[in-house]
Design a protein around this nucleic acid. Structure first.
Lengths: 309, 309
RNA sequence: GGACACCUCCUGGA
DNA sequence: TCCAGGAGGTGTCC
């Protein structure tokens, strides 16, 4: 039989704490989210996860109907992707497509599957849509409260069970009940994808920039340096992005190491300032780095170093 | 003396039988309503009538403070009207502004008057607000019962009297000549001067920080330096806010001047990065300043200087 | 310019 | 709990 599921996303403040969910019935739904995301990331991820879980459950051959209130998602998958591919994942205006990773996952997942998308008006009383909405919002709220318990749902029952195999499928309608009779609504935050805080992320990135490995890697540098990156070096010299990448890759040896992080502060919702010290062949230097969050992650926007007496 | 009045509206069922009222004291208040109206019509009309009656009483020159629990009314008069005018009385989404007639009356009435609006939380025990609320609701209830008697209040004593004219003003304390040539001290959106861009503002502030005048002024410094201000000085020394203010005020002489602004970039919606050069007794230095916008204006969050070869 | 979604805030009610 | 009257914004695409 055709599987019918609703998918929805939520982002408090947008961007802000975000959640996604898909829902078939009370014993078959899943949800997740991020400490910081957009409404559209949520809308996309809800569909991506639905496709992944049905596939993992061996239902890739089953017709699937996805109820979705986001025209962005529906148009992405049914209209816009072919054009974007043709243009190297560029939009009509030449700028890169947003949420590219999710969009490409969606594109691959949908290939060869029997899926139809149906637009439903949001908040109009459609039962499945409301159920997905509720669960997506619950996750966003949990992230907002920095709650430990993220209500992720049972997923596709049977698929989630490591032991599930063909023999188990003898049983009725929708697979086996999980060993735990409890519907398992609230999983403790799974350790595996414990989201690092933004502060941790940025310090990790900062540290990586001091390693020879990253300094030798032009594409990694290009990922980490903001398009408008500038730097005032410890010598007082001004550097721009291209010059910096060129200089680093041509002599990547690490010449200083991070000796202390003096502070990591959020100076705007999407900007973190890291103040730290390095020590190396040229002595102690105090440094600041301004990291900003973009659609494709945290980028170093500005750096300045000053030799310390 | 400054007149202080509360204004409030009420609509049973919303929309439904509706009332409005303003209140100064038990002998000076007015109320009215409609058989069918909205809460916001009531909130607007309460202020409109207050302005009309004070004007008719010859008190247009008197400072007036309006206590109002409706953010809709306060934002309308202090923030949104200029934008609506620019867009032909359209809202952000292109649809027409609601309650247009009342809004335009309010706009005309407020022009050239010395009015301040203060938001008070509804139903939080503010005496004047409760008194106005009571009277607005009484009118709405009267309309609901199709009562013949609508409690409209005494109005502005004397003003409501048809015979009131200039000669009557010999009487009490308040009142000043309405011919007052004073132009409008209304503190919302001064239309007269083009607002500076954020970039201009921040460069001006940055420049002012290099003057002896500002460096000597602890309270001005306290205004300009963010509560979490930090600095890496050109010597490599770390400074915090208090230490900086103390050092500057104890030896405020300007020891460098701004020789070039190398860039002003928005790194977040409320954060600007200024990169510039100074030259002074200790030679050339390249510097960066991170300014962030707070409720009380732009504040310097971080500064770093590096001597240039 | 259009569309869908995600919100934020205040008030008024039943 | 539920609903309505009002405004502001962002995320995304065409």
């Amino acid at each position: 039989m055709t599987i019918v599921a609703a998918a929805d996303g939520s982002a408090l403040g947008n961007p802000g704490p975000a959640g996604w969910a898909w829902y078939v019935d009370d014993s078959c739904w899943a949800a997740g989210g991020w400490p910081h995301g957009t409404n559209n990331m949520g809308e996309l991820m809800a569909v991506v996860d639905l496709l992944e879980q049905t596939e993992a459950a061996g239902l890739a051959g089953e017709p699937l109907k996805v109820l979705c209130d986001s025209q962005y998602v529906i148009n992405t998958v049914t209209k816009w992707i072919p054009g974007w591919k043709r243009k190297g994942w560029r939009k009509a205006d030449g700028k890169p497509v947003q949420n590219l990773e999710l969009v490409q996952r969606l594109d691959e997942l949908v290939a060869g599957r029997n899926v139809v998308f149906e637009w439903v008006k949001g908040h109009a009383g459609h039962e499945l849509n409301e159920a997905a909405d509720l669960r997506a919002r619950a996750v966003a709220t949990a992230y907002q409260r920095k709650s430990a318990a993220i209500p992720t749902g049972p997923g596709w029952a049977g698929a989630a069970m490591p032991g599930a195999d063909a023999s188990a499928k003898a049983s009725p309608a929708r697979a086996v009940a999980p060993a735990d009779p409890e519907p398992a609504l609230f999983d403790a935050a799974p350790l595996r994808d414990e989201p690092a805080t933004d502060e941790e992320t940025v310090v990790r990135l900062e540290t990586s920039l001091l390693t020879a490995e990253v300094r030798a890697d032009a594409s990694r540098l290009a990922e980490l340096l903001h398009p408008n990156f500038e730097e005032i070096g410890a010598s007082g010299r001004l550097w721009d992005r291209d010059t910096t990448i060129q200089a680093l890759t041509s002599s990547p040896a690490a010449d200083a190491e991070l000796s202390a992080v003096l502070g990591v502060s959020r100076v705007a919702s999407d900007a973190l300032l890291v103040v730290f010290e390095t020590s190396g062949s040229r002595g102690l230097a105090r440094r600041s780095s301004l990291w900003v969050r973009t659609a494709s992650g945290w980028k170093l926007r500005f750096h300045q170093g000053t030799p310390a007496v």
